[in-house]
């Protein structure tokens, strides 16, 4: 790997694409931009660098987010000076090892974590708490066991009239392909189906941002890959939907994301932001894929071949 061929972080403002890759991916780079029409914005790793202003208002604008947990073992800096700008329609992955604060960051965006310093703006307005403009999918599906799939999917729609609610619920059950299970209870679903129902529940309120907290972490490897394709389809079926996904699976991040935000632990901070310029639907291997993967794994001090369960579950 030559350092000049790969430029994972755009250093010049004129660089529209953070990742400049070998010919194979350069060719496929153009169609990829259709999923994120706005020119790619480049962020720098160093907190001092100013992010380049895009003309479109960012969907999400995080400035100097710092979160400290006060536990019995003293203070733990979960996040330090995190700056991130997310454009409408982007698919972002927060990638990092356990304890890097990626879930905390997602929870701050979701409004579930309140005591932090810095500003978190959603469409220019400060995030004050949870809301229907964000859909949250937890690692464990958290479907309520006493409700059927359709009742779970309609959970956030209690304010609507019955008929309107039923229409939205059916549309979302169809979106995730669970038509045959709409009357089933969560305990009757497989892990993958339950997580699809959970995604449908989060999307039913028509949020602008879908927040996925390691949604596939509890699934087996094959179901994971299938679900990654499902998530991509769902994202593409909802134009303008921004997705922020927490993962510790490099392949998953590479398969799905427009940009991968690499976080490093203790204190949790953004180490690098990687623009994945591979066209969709993406191959799960190939030179472009492998080059970025190699470089990402190097961030975690792993060689490409190594199989450390901590990072490649």
């Amino acid at each position: 790997m030559s350092a000049t061929a790969i430029q994972l972080v755009g250093t010049e403002p004129s660089d529209r694409r953070g990742v400049t890759l070998e010919p194979e991916t350069s060719r496929s780079a153009a169609p990829a931009s259709t999923s994120a029409p706005a020119p790619k914005q480049t962020e720098s790793v160093t907190p001092t660098a100013v992010a380049v202003k895009d003309l479109s208002t960012p969907r999400l604008d995080l400035k100097d987010i710092t979160k400290i947990f006060h536990g019995e073992a003293g203070e733990v800096v979960a996040l330090q000076d995190v700056n991130l700008v997310v454009k409408p329609g982007e698919f972002i992955s927060l990638l990092g090892a356990s304890g890097c604060g990626k879930t905390t960051l997602l929870r701050i965006i979701g409004g579930l974590e309140k005591a932090y310093s810095g500003t978190a703006l959603l469409d220019g307005r400060p995030i004050k708490g949870p809301g229907r403009d964000r859909g949250f999918v937890f690692q464990d599906h958290r479907l309520l066991p006493w409700l059927t799939v359709e009742e779970n999917v309609g959970f956030g729609l209690a304010h609507l009239k019955k008929k309107e609610r039923a229409e939205i619920v059916q549309a979302h059950i169809k979106l995730v392909g669970l038509e045959a299970f709409s009357k089933s209870y969560p305990s009757q679903l497989s892990g993958g189906m339950a997580q699809r129902a959970s995604i449908a529940r989060a999307l039913a309120t028509d949020p602008e941002i879908l927040l996925l907290d390691e949604p596939l972490g509890a699934l087996d490897a094959l179901t994971r890959m299938y679900m990654q394709e499902e998530i991509e389809k769902i994202w593409q079926a909802k134009p303008g939907l921004t997705v922020i996904m927490v993962t510790h699976d490099v392949d998953e991040a590479l398969y799905l994301s427009d940009r991968i935000v690499v976080l490093s632990p203790r204190p949790g901070r953004i180490k690098r932001i990687v623009d994945v310029g591979i066209s969709r639907p993406r191959p799960r291997e190939g030179q472009g894929f492998n080059t970025i993967k190699k470089s990402l794994l190097a961030e975690f001090h792993l060689s490409h071949k190594e199989d450390d369960p901590e990072f490649t579950i």
């Binding site: 690692q139 464990d140 066991p145 006493w146 409700l147 089933s184 209870y185 305990s187 009757q188 679903l189 497989s190 892990g191 993958g192 339950a194 972490g217 509890a218 699934l219 087996d220 179901t223």
Partner: peptide, 15 residues
């Protein structure tokens, strides 16, 4: 709903 735990093909525990 408590008595509906019949069909659980590949249910995984949460981690």
């Amino acid at each position: 709903w408590l008595s509906q735990n019949i069909h659980t093909p590949s249910k995984r525990g949460t981690t």
